[in-house]
Amino acid sequence: MFELLRRIRRTGILDRPLPASDSTDPAMSGLQENLHAVFGRALRIRHVDAGSCNGCELEIHALSNPYYNLEGHGISFVASPRHADVLLVTGPVSVNMEEALKRTWEAMPEPKWVLAIGDCGACGGIFGNNYATRGPVSDVLPVHAVVSGCPPSPQRILHGLLQLTRQLDTDELPASR
């Protein structure tokens, strides 16, 4: 037990500032503020793998490690679509997942948004369209933003969330929010 506690103390806090504050891209500044302003530390995400190779899932997992500390910034993944604001979709949509994906989307309360993750989700990727895949997520659901990359790095996924919240901030949310 002593060794465990000592290790916790020595590890400290690894959480680096979100890319917003150390990026040279001015558009990236203020990610935290934006997210907080829009969702008040309460952005809830439901993820659906609609046919991915599992590469994007690995990077989505990484968002929860101490370096990106997504939950610490008020963004968390939820188990039920009924609790979610954003649907994160990976993969070219396989025909075998088409129905489950649509049902998940239908189960989400309004207002709601779709963020397509990875080259496959964005444009079909290397798999394209055939008897088994529908290609990009936008062929099946309305998509509000995409994050390309194969797989996209955790930073790029955070950037995608920022873009989405920007869009919500200006266009889609009622003034009272």
């Binding site: 793998d49 046919g51 070219p92 396989s94 290397i126 798999f127 055939n130 008897y131 088994a132």
Partner: peptide
Amino acid sequence: LGYTHKGVAKR
């Protein structure tokens, strides 16, 4: 299983 079948062999 089979939900993520993407027709890789055909591709």
